[in-house]
Every structure is written in C-alpha cells, then in structure tokens.
Computed example of a mutant assay.
Amino acid sequence: MELPRITFIQKIKQFSSYRIGYVLVIAAAALAGLIHSISKPLLEYSNINTVAISPVTLAAVIFIVNGLFFTPLQKNTDSISKIGRKNLLLLALIGIAEASAVITYFFGLKESTAVNASILTNGEILFSILVAITIFRERLQKKELPPFTMIILGIVLLPVGFDLYHNGMIITDLVYGNLLILLSGAFYALDINLCKYVSNKMNAKTITQLASFVAGGFALCLIFVFQIPFEISISHLPSIAIIGIFGTGISTFFFIIALRLIGAVRTILLYSTTSVFGVIFAGIILQESITLAHVFSIILVSIGLYALRNRLGSDEKIIHYFKGNVKDALP
C-alpha cells in the first residue's frame, strides 16, 4: 500500500510543478509584452512626455538597470578572472549584439506602432531558424516548409506588406520602422547563437549580468562619440524600471525556470503568446487600432510555431543553455 501512496504523492508534486511552470511562462510572456507599450511613449514627444528619450540613451539605462538587477544574484559564482579571455571576448560580442538589437528596435518602435512591434519581434525566431540552416547546415524537412512559410507570411509579408499597400507602396516612416524592428531580430538571433556557444562555460546569471553591463557600456560609448543628449527626467524612471527589471530581467528569469519545470517545447510555445499580450497592451494602454491583418498575422505565426514545435523545442543547444544552467540561475 505504501508504493501506490508514494506514486500518488509524486504525481501530485509533478502536477503542481507543471502548473507553476505554466503560470511562470505566461507571466514571462505578459511581462515581455509590456515592453512595446511602455517604451514607445518614452521615445516620442507628447503632452505628458515633454522630453523624448533617445533610443540609444534608453537602451543604455535599461541594460545598466538589468545588470544591477542580476548583480545580487551573483553569489557563489566564479570571478571574472576565471572566465578566460576567449569567453570574455564572446561576452563582449554578446553585449554588442544585444545593444545593437535593442537600439535598432527602439529606433524602429519610434517610427512604427506597438502593435506592429509585438508581431515583428517574432523575427528573432525566423532569423534563428535561418542561422541554423545557413551556418549549422540544418535542413527543413518537406513537412516543415508549409509552417515555416506561414511564419514568414505572419511575421514579414503580412505586416510590412499591409503597411506598404496602405501607403501606396511607398516606404514611409512607418514602413521604415517596421524594417528596423525586423533587423533587430537578426541581431537577437546572433545574440542567441553566441549565448548557446558560451553556455557550457559559465552560468546563465553571469552571461546575463556581464553582457548587460557590456551592452550598457557600448551604448554609453555611442552616446559619447555621437554626442547624443542624455536627457532623462524623474517621470521616466518608473517606466524604465518596469522595462529593465520586469520586462527584461524577471521575464527572462521566469522563462528559465519554466523551461526546467515544463520542458522546452511547452515553454517556447506558450512564450510565443508574447505577441498576443503585446497587441492587447498596445490596444489598452496606447489605444492603438488592431486590424484584421494584425490578428491574421498572429494566427499564422502561432500555427506555424505549433507545427514546428518539435524542431524548436528539441534543439539540444537551446535546452543545454537554459535547462543546463537553470539550477545556477535560481537564487
């Protein structure tokens, strides 16, 4: 009688872990979805926001805040001297790639809409698959071509094509902003692949903390070289804190824990709801219009990701990076 009782208790614990994992990944997606709607008002003039923050300045502050957030979690970790020059160089490249991605994204968001940004940021997934195909010589199977095409249609052709058609096939500031957001996805894909490479050398906290400080330092260098105004008012600080701590730091933290609790496939699929949350927040917070084209884009991307779930979730390098280091990521 004791063995069935133990099995029953284990099943209850497993169910509780799954439930916690589902809650955490949905929370991570919701927090990440806030970034678009919270960032855009900071980048443009309005009756409330009398000072528009430069995208480079905003990126610098967010990265520094994120690095400081992860600093207290760096207990019992190796010192920088033990990391090695090669890994430090790779961390520097990761930081520069992250800074380039965020700065490009903010410049694009300034010209585009938060609704478009919520959809176009899925370009990171598209470029990651393209990197795997071109660099790692992976091939898409025949059954994977239709969903991959759906992802391209949902992320690129439908949002950008709709805006081009709506503006008479002229590259307006809106279309230009959309293209910059897509470009930021390419930088994010480079960042992910570099993180995969160094993941077996150090834990996730070290990568996040040091890369954030490098990215912040790189952005500060751009501010100094190009003499970009460093204009931030006290009223901006709550929004910046939400973006840096909640939208980036805690969101990533929840994502890492969810990977361990419910696995890569479920986590990646549920985290893709970031687009849905982003569109909803843009409609509620910024009162932006949501068209049928936006809804159709999200549906296409969601179906495509679901069909490619095994490819995305079974990537051994992704699982090694997140699940292999999640124990060290916990405080």
Rank of each mutant, 00 (worst) to 15 (best):
A215Y: 01
S297G: 01
R266Y: 10
L179T: 04
G247S: 04
Q287R: 11
Y188F: 13
T50G: 09
I298Y: 06
L120Q: 02
Q287M: 14
I119M: 05
A97D: 00
V131N: 02
T149E: 11
I262M: 06
S233G: 13
P147S: 04
S37K: 06
R137N: 15
E288I: 01
E231V: 14
T208Y: 13
I280N: 01
T57C: 08
P146C: 02
L3N: 14
G123Y: 14
P147T: 04
P159T: 06
M202Q: 10
I192G: 05
N203A: 03
I268L: 15
L190Y: 02
A211H: 07
F277R: 00
V175W: 07
L34D: 03
K196E: 09
L312Y: 03
I119K: 01
G249C: 11
I151S: 01
I256N: 00
N167P: 03
R19Y: 12
V326F: 10
A29E: 05
A211T: 07
T104E: 00
L174T: 13
H294A: 07
S297V: 06
E124D: 14
A293V: 12
L88P: 13
I12W: 14
H36N: 12
E111R: 15
I48D: 05
A27M: 14
L91Y: 03
G21N: 03
A186I: 11
Y22F: 15
L164N: 05
N167K: 11
T274N: 12
G278K: 08
G283P: 08
I53S: 04
V276A: 12
G244E: 03
I284C: 07
I232R: 03
L194Y: 00
G283Q: 09
L300S: 01
V198G: 03
L145S: 01
V160T: 06
P4E: 07
A282S: 10
I262K: 00
F226G: 07
I245V: 12
L34Y: 13
E2N: 14
Q227G: 07
R19T: 15
A101R: 06
L73N: 10
G154E: 11
P229G: 11
P229M: 04
L3S: 13
